[in-house]
Design a protein around this nucleic acid. Structure first.
Lengths: 213, 213
DNA sequence: GACGTCGGATAGCGGCGCTAGCCAACCAAG
DNA sequence: CTTGGTTGGCTAGCGCCGCTATCCGACGTC
């Protein structure tokens, strides 16, 4: 198929597709001659993934390029590629280390990981962006005066661990090996909105049960 | 305290505070005379909440104003005010109703709510932005070829329901009535990053357990 | 009366995600 | 052989958003 058809079938304007090509989010088509390139289903699929990342996942274009780069880099091992999306995605400012709230948050996160026995997380520790974003979010809560501590978070963490096990089970049973990395990216970015929405729905439901409409 | 001190204690530049005042995110201080206004602890607290919404919660300024408006509107009942944040926060494009993926997503969401017995959610249905964002996210997954259906989501939904019950328990035991609405806003916006981070950490942990580092 | 700070107002900046428009090269239909 | 439509590539710029910089005249203080 050619650019116009790719545009039509994806619902993305040709100008935007050209932009994605320029930005390296989408591989160029097979060049037929100087003025024609041929695209196939894989381009359509990738284009939809890009749109999903950007529109649903709210991932900045630059980050999307980075993540997709890992997806395509076959020299990387599976685990690393799987982790790459998670690793690149959180976009959290560096914590201000002079802030006492940050120190307190870091302490509580450490305590939480100890109590859960999550050795890996504790070893990778401050390097992991996920770890960092937890510290930042917690520090913000603390600064606002909410005394969130390890004990309060532990049950949440256990619930999220159950969620994570389901995620990985799903991943193991879905898609070919080739598709699995893409699945992992889609999972990291797109399950999150689903989870968030389910969380919100559950809150609405439970609130209505307790207090009426 | 005056503007300069408010700025210093909050870590927000005077120019930005002025901007928030202009945008109605922050109530004006008590006017002492034509060129001086006096701020108090409540301004500091609100300012920190605004920063949290915008920086951690990634909430657009206009949306933050809307949410805070509900917080301040004492004519609204508690439940509504609690819900207001949830109601205003999701920022999802309108689903394209001509898209078959959207129709399929809507069907699966209905089935899910039926099977869970979440009557409220089903009645409020398409009106709720949370409901809408679930449909949009699910439609995106379906369009990408992931056959997520009601059966797959149900266990996730049940887990998130447990999370929601914890949220509301927390809310009931925290803060004065006056503070509770603000707490609900902080919860809606700031617990989410914590939850997301815990989810990510749990994935890293579980992945390391299964596949090594 | 000189100085510094106040509030208020306005203009503009920098980043991001496109978007519009032009181009010469090409090809297929008439 | 013309004509019209499409191609990739390029460049310029738009629209929004979250600030930020600067100027101002009014004030309180020394």
């Amino acid at each position: 198929m050619r650019l116009a058809e790719l545009s039509e079938r994806s619902g993305v304007s040709t100008a935007t597709i050209k932009y994605y090509l320029r930005e390296g989010l989408l591989a160029p088509g097979r060049q037929v001659n100087a003025t024609t390139a041929e695209y196939d289903e894989s381009h359509l699929r990738r284009l939809r993934l890009v749109r999903a990342l950007i529109q649903v996942g709210r991932v900045p274009v630059a980050t999307a390029r980075e993540v997709l780069g890992h997806v395509d880099d076959e020299s990387l091992g599976r685990t690393i590629r799987l982790g790459a999306a998670l690793w690149a995605l959180p976009q959290v400012p560096e914590p201000d280390e002079t802030d006492p709230a940050v120190a307190a948050a870091r302490r509580e996160v450490d305590r939480l990981l100890s109590s859960l026995g999550w050795a890996t997380a504790r070893e990778l520790g401050p390097l992991s962006p996920v770890h960092r974003s937890l510290v930042v979010a917690l520090a913000t809560l603390i600064r606002l005066g909410y005394a969130w501590d390890a004990e309060l978070m532990a049950p949440y963490a256990k619930l999220m661990h159950q969620v994570a096990m389901r995620d990985l089970d799903f991943l193991e049973t879905h898609g070919s090996e080739a598709e699995r990395v893409e699945t992992a990216v889609a999972a990291a970015v797109l399950f999150e909105p689903v989870l968030r929405a389910l969380h919100g729905l559950a809150q609405e439901e439970e609130s209505a049960r307790r207090y009426g409409l």
